[in-house]
Design a protein around this nucleic acid. Structure first.
Lengths: 143, 143
DNA sequence: TTCATATCGGACAATAATATCCGATATGAT
DNA sequence: ATCATATCGGATATTATTGTCCGATATGAA
């Protein structure tokens, strides 16, 4: 469904949502360790998220990545997915036809449409805040 | 959503559903040409489908692949997807947690559950016959 | 100033998915 | 029997994704 990069991205953002703020930054080492991901690979992903202003970064000693708590309800999952995986998940024809469309649909078009719309709606309306609010009962990091 | 192999598999089955029967077989060359796929790669896929009795094959001169029309309403999409891609699409945690479950769900578990159930239901109830019945208005092959 | 600890960013490596090649075998038609 | 045309199946090649390495740069603290 999502690429591994995208999975790491979501996990990293959730980790920072819970464990960082304006004056508590987390190093890429901390993040990779927490979400059980390869450190250098994760670094690239965080750079992308930083470039797209999902997370903030501070260079140098005592630097690291962080998210302002006040932004947690403004970050929608769809934004993260879009940055890392693009919109292929919604728009690419399920059977791989280049010109599949409403006018000239593939045999699976109608059946898949509802599922994709539901997925898109869910990702669009779910914020990081929504995710961490259920944390008591949920897995969050490596386990 | 599906792997490329799985896309080819579904397209090949749809092609055979429309263009073959007990005494009209289609060579792997015909199939690959019709669905615009690499011939040798498609051959492997057809072998798998044949081994799993989704399609039938006849070796030798005038041989090829075919599907008995009477089977078209018995072949569900879920079967093809399962043979080629396995059940990862339904069962693997969307965030990649190894032990994500109902009891210990990942932060996205509930949100993704409905979408996956809908997908599974759709694939389980849709037969090849259903797909080709709408063929008048649909793209079927390379265009 | 120097140092330790960060991110940054380009080059490279490993793995998995996709694609190709080629010889072997099967079989109906001539 | 021979031939043309199929599938069969193993080995190899290519490409995309995932993962690693290392030097450069930034910056707060001693």
């Amino acid at each position: 469904m999502f690429s591994k990069s995208c999975e790491y991205a979501i996990k990293a953002v959730v980790y920072l949502a819970i464990n960082s703020d304006n004056d508590t930054k987390r190093s890429i080492g901390d993040i990779a360790n927490a979400i059980d991901s390869p450190i250098a690979f994760t670094a690239k992903i965080l750079q992308k998220l930083s470039a797209n202003e999902i997370v903030k970064s501070a260079k140098g000693n005592a630097g690291g990545y962080y998210i302002l708590p006040s932004n947690l309800s403004k970050i929608h999952l769809s934004k993260i997915v879009d940055i890392i995986d693009g919109d292929a998940i919604y728009t690419n024809c399920a059977l791989g036809f280049k010109n599949c469309s409403e006018i000239k649909p593939c045999p699976l078009h109608e059946q898949i449409k509802k599922i994709r719309t539901d997925l898109r709606n869910m990702l669009t309306k779910t914020t990081i805040n929504d995710l961490i609010n259920a944390k008591e009962k949920n897995i969050i990091f490596k386990n």
